[in-house]
Design a protein around this nucleic acid. Structure first.
Length: 558
RNA sequence: GGCCCGUUAGUCAAGCGGCUAAGACGUUGGCCUCUCACGCCAAAGGCAGGAGUUCGAUUCUCCUACGGGUCACCA
């Protein structure tokens, strides 16, 4: 530590009066049992969370909670320009909807926990203490810009400009500028400051990119990364830290043991490790996870991002995917042995699955709507009729008022409807999402009943009429299923239809048709569809009055 | 372009030097059956390519191709 650098630190940070030691005191080691993991979700409040955003948060939450650790929410709002009003609350609400709850950190009602503040804009003073320390130790230096230069810098679209540039020339030039600025003296800095110039603080990188170091990532495995030679900006000209600096300071102070983040951070990892080292902190363990992908218009895989079809979680809610189904799908993608576990433990909560980072794939996977639907059907098939009813109502209330009205008028009736084929070893799997309920069960409700009378084409209308008439005479709600079906068989015989399917198949020409046709006529008349659950159960629920009404109506349509 | 990562069927994936290369979704055919759904049976479909190491490579090494990420005073 030279006297010059100490003087420089004092010149640059006259407002900083605390020492790192004082800060550290406020962040004692966490008192947790052996092996407990401390993880965090650290989004920047720039909009809603999309489908892909659920992955790292689910992983972090599972890791913390299945180890008896702590899971907290940190808001990374160091870029005021990009902040979206209300994004924080929306994000908390979305995560909560999908069952992801925080133990500490930012929340709708202020902050919870003693390792805060958990909002980076509130931590400005803390970062500056460490920035000053690095400056004093000669590990960071200021790069000045005149007000005009700064304005010009902000005026151009960085990204567009960057794309147009030649990569070689650009990186060489940057490096040269960095190196030149490194040697700034106290006197020079003082002059610049007096001139009203502004500065960013850069770390003084000591690595040689031609040298590699080994790093063990919990998902990607053993990596070989180049040493960092980039003098990354750690403090922006507004005095706020860059992501890199904030990450290192915060995760150290807050006691994060495992950082789970998208693998787009992999390339800046050497800088983060170097910063931990410069500050004398022990780095956390890292798990860089691959993003969920989509196929773009050219047939290439692309990272699923906010604007993509199927990215917005709100769309899933609108379509009527229960959050449990989305979570289940995410779990199957996260750990490939999850499905196997699920088959063995159909009734357990997903939280009792032993989640493992080791089972995560190092490469990104494609979002598969077919798979989501299948998983979803399985999840819903395990729900009780009551839970289906609740879920469906909650959804319909918001997205399908007519359905909601029908469902909720007589809860017992609706629950009976949803009980069909439910509860046994082989439950029906008719619906993947709530918006399918109309098509599946709408016919149970008179206001949703929109019959299409597709009677079997090879039966003449006169016979259809006879079947319906006779059935109206013989239906008795008190019959059990076999008694009911015996009646149907008899009815079939009396009209010249085969009552025995085998017999019919042997000599189809001897009959007008079979019981199957008779049953179909009844099904179509009563449900208005050619496909429905078990006719007997359907009749039981509809009841004699409604059955008669519908038979009359069907005859009218002949 | 540099650097890093990845590549097993249409999709998600087991696999960790010797297997007829699991399983799931989807697709197709069949069985069951009053239709549907469920369930059951079956089929089609894969180690990106090339060298090398080895008695033997999906597995280890290298090269090529392809894909992804990154190279901001954004996170």
């Amino acid at each position: 530590m030279s006297t010059d650098s100490v003087k420089l630190a004092e010149l640059l940070f006259p407002d900083v009066d605390k020492t790192p030691e004082q800060i550290e005191k406020a962040y004692p080691p966490r008192n947790l049992k052996e092996g407990a993991k401390v993880t965090r979700f650290a989004p920047s409040p720039t909009g809603f969370i999309h489908f892909g955003g659920l992955f790292p948060s689910t992983v972090s939450e599972r890791l913390a909670h299945q180890s008896g650790g702590v899971f907290y929410l940190r808001i990374e709002d160091t870029d005021a320009k990009r902040e979206v009003a209300g994004a924080k609350d929306a994000l908390i609400e979305t995560l909560s909807y999908y069952g992801i709850k925080f133990d500490e950190g930012a929340s709708e009602n202020g902050e919870v926990g003693s390792y805060g503040p958990y909002t980076q804009s509130l931590r400005r003073d803390i970062y500056r203490v460490y920035a000053k320390k690095l400056t004093a130790e000669g590990k960071a230096y200021p790069v000045f810009l005149t007000a005009e230069e700064y304005q010009k810098l902000n005026a151009v679209d960085k990204k567009a400009e960057l794309k147009a540039r030649d990569w070689h020339a650009d990186s060489d030039k940057q490096l040269q500028e960095q190196r030149a600025a490194r040697s700034i003296t106290y006197e020079q800095a003082k002059q610049r400051l007096e001139h009203g110039d502004i500065f960013v603080l850069r770390m003084r990188a000591t690595g040689d990119p031609d040298k590699k170091f080994k790093f063990n990532d919990l998902v990607k495995g053993l990596l070989e990364l180049p040493e960092n030679d980039r003098d990354e900006i750690i403090l922006k000209s507004d005095g706020m830290p860059s992501y890199h600096f904030a990450h290192v300071v915060d995760d150290h102070l807050m006691g994060t043991t495992h950082v789970i983040r998208g693998d787009e951070w992999l390339s800046s990892l050497p800088r983060h490790i170097m910063l931990f080292d410069m500050l004398g902190f022990k780095p956390p363990k890292y798990a860089h996870i691959s993003p969920i992908m989509r196929i773009d218009e050219n047939g290439n895989k692309k990272k699923l991002s906010k604007r993509d079809m199927g990215a917005n979680l709100e769309d899933y809610r609108k379509l009527g995917y229960a959050p449990e189904c989305v979570t289940e799908y995410i779990m199957t993608l996260l750990n490939s042995n999850y499905e196997e576990w699920r088959m063995q433990n159909p009734d357990k909560e997903y939280t009792s699955f032993p989640f493992s980072l080791k089972k995560m794939s190092p490469s990104g996977c494609l979002f598969d709507p077919d798979k989501l639907n299948d998983v979803s059907k399985n999840v819903l098939s395990r729900f009780s009729a009551d839970r289906i009813y609740q879920g469906a109502c909650e959804w319909a209330k918001e997205f399908d008022a007519e359905l909601f009205k029908a469902l909720s008028r007589d809860p017992e009736y609706s629950i009976a409807v949803f009980s069909i084929g439910r509860g046994g070893k082989k439950p029906r799997k008719d619906i993947a999402k709530w918006d399918e309920i109309r098509a599946y069960a709408g016919f149970f409700y008179d206001e949703l009943f929109e019959p299409k009378y597709d009677f079997p084409s090879d039966i003449n209308p006169e016979d259809v009429r006879k079947i319906l008439d006779s059935y109206a005479q013989i239906y008795d709600k008190a019959d059990d299923e076999s008694a009911w079906f015996d009646k149907i068989k008899k009815l079939a015989e009396s009209l010249g239809f085969a009552s025995d399917m085998k017999q019919y198949k042997q000599n189809p020409e001897q009959f007008k048709g079979s019981v199957a046709d008779v049953a179909m006529v009844l099904r179509v008349a009563v449900t208005g569809k050619t496909m429905s659950p078990d006719t007997y159960r359907v009749m039981q629920i509809l009841g004699p009055d409604r059955i008669n009404e519908r038979i009359t109506r069907a005859k009218g349509a002949l």
